[in-house]
Design a protein around this nucleic acid. Structure first.
Length: 472
DNA sequence: CCCGGAAGAG
DNA sequence: CTCTTCCGGG
């Protein structure tokens, strides 16, 4: 028979509910949103299934953040096969495909647990927002520490690239940020980081973490519901976002970015984030308000839900010069981007508050790893193991990926990402940046005056920092 | 079960 | 490129 490749099956109009576990931005669930790929990708599909309660019987979030278990492998395979019109799909094949993601760092296997895999949230985000150097982003870094490196980070350029093959012209044409269309460089795709005040400016100070989340155990007990799901809708609603080009090709992808949207509009990087915000908006708000059909329809509220603990994001390591790479290596060295940022962020993340957070002595953060093979100038790779269970994954086989790495390079142009001294961060930071972000209270639709400050920051950044992605 | 190489399809 | 298919090995 025909395979009904049903796409609709998985795509709800507006997902009213998502599993408590993890939620990703809308775009993550839509195949068509997949930036680099024309066709639905397996990880997207998995996300879709996870998102729908009706499939909880076959696949469900369970365990750590980003971790899910396939309860009914055959069924999942069947669904996948249906989607791809591959009637002969089976778990063996599907799992092969899943394994294929290991190198890309999109997924990892949770060792010891059958049918259990874990998403690397960071990767997902990066994919969609390559612009942001999440790796360097404080948030992630912070988390990294948080985890203690339990998980591996993955935001290596390669990974990014893999998911995000190349930005189409539109990418460059349209500026990602509010700046509007500034003409980007003719040549490649340049991405700007303007939106991250914290990156360059000193650190923002962040007040305290919302108490939204409870304790943040490193290893959450099972099913620990990631409590924050719901609030996101408002938080990142497009309102904040500068504006998106209606016609842009990548509509949702850009706005939803939590970091971007949230930060950009915030006067203080985190100040708003921290605001406990309004609950009201949160919870059910989502459902109600989604404006349209979900989809890419204009922007609607993007609900961004993150994984329970982004800890996995840990991208602690930035590898700046890999042995192989040379070109800008110097720059990198000159500016310890990773370092600076990481610290800054780290602080944020760590927030001492929760005692647990301490950055472990392990300090994976420093890790610079040299990838002999990678060529990218500035490469960020994970150093920690990525495995969910701290197994020793030592290193991944990145060799193959080297190719990818070459393809795109992330270079910090400005020189400076400087940044914030590690110590600059107040101790009171919240433990998990991301989470905090999400729960943010929704900013007023109209941009409040408060924005100014941020704007100022923006400016600064503009000049100073630019993140360029160069595709070779 | 899980892993990853190899070849090949679209 | 992203799987899909096979497959030998643990």
């Amino acid at each position: 028979m025909d395979c009904n490749c049903v796409s609709d099956l998985l795509l709800p109009p507006v997902p009213a509910l998502w599993t408590p576990g993890i939620a990703f931005p809308d775009w993550a669930y839509k195949p068509e949103s997949s930036p680099g790929s024309r066709q639905i990708q397996l990880w997207h599909f998995i996300l879709e299934l996870l998102q729908k309660e009706e499939y909880n019987g076959v696949i469900v979030w369970q365990g750590d953040y980003g971790e899910f278990v396939i309860k009914d492998p055959d069924e999942v395979a069947r669904l996948w096969g249906a989607r791809k019109c591959k009637p002969h799909m089976n778990y063996d094949k599907l799992s092969r495909a899943l394994r294929y993601y290991y190198n890309k760092r999109i997924l990892h296997k949770t060792k010891g647990k059958r049918f259990t895999y874990k998403f690397n949230f960071s990767k997902v985000v990066l994919v969609n927002y390559p612009l942001l150097d999440m790796a360097n982003s404080p948030f992630f870094l912070a988390q990294n520490h948080f985890n203690g490196g339990s998980t591996a980070p993955d935001c290596s350029p390669e990974a990014i690239q893999s998911l995000f093959p190349r930005l189409p012209d539109s990418g460059r044409g349209t500026s990602l940020f509010d700046r509007g269309t500034t003409a980007p460089g003719p040549e490649g795709d340049k991405l700007r980081l303007d939106a991250f005040p914290f990156l360059s400016t000193g650190a923002p100070c962040y007040t305290k973490p919302p108490s939204l989340l409870g304790p943040y155990p490193r290893n959450p007990p099972f099913d620990y519901p990631w409590g924050f799901n719901p609030y996101l809708p408002g938080a990142f609603s497009l309102n904040n976002c500068p504006k998106l080009p209606p016609g842009s090709l990548y509509p949702s992808q850009f706005y939803p970015n939590p970091l971007q949207s949230g930060l950009s509009q915030l006067p203080h990087p985190f100040s708003s984030l921290l605001t406990p915000g309004e609950p009201g908006g949160g919870e059910r708000g989502a459902a109600g308000q989604t404006g349209g059909t979900n989809g890419t329809a204009g922007g609607q509220p993007v609900r961004l839900i993150m994984p329970p603990f982004p800890g996995s994001l840990s991208m602690g390591r930035t590898d700046i010069g890999n042995g192989a790479s040379l070109g800008e290596r110097e720059r990198a060295e000159a500016n310890p981007v990773g370092t600076g940022l990481s610290l800054g962020l780290g602080a944020i993340g760590l927030g001492a508050g929760t005692g647990t957070g301490r950055q472990s002595p392990t300090e994976r953060r420093g890790g610079l790893k040299l990838d002999p093979e990678s060529d990218s100038d500035l490469e960020i790779t994970d150093l920690s193991d990525s495995s969910s269970d701290n197994e020793n994954e030592h290193e991944f086989g990145i060799r193959k990926e080297s190719r990818l790495a070459n393809r795109s390079q992330i270079v910090l142009d400005g020189k400076k990402v400087s940044a914030l001294p590690p110590s600059s961060l107040p101790a009171t930071v919240s433990p998990r940046p991301l989470k905090s972000l999400m729960p943010v209270s929704p900013p007023p639709p109209s941009l409040p005056p408060s924005r100014s400050p941020s704007v100022a920051l923006h400016d600064r950044h503009k000049k100073t920092e630019t993140l360029k992605m160069i595709h070779s």
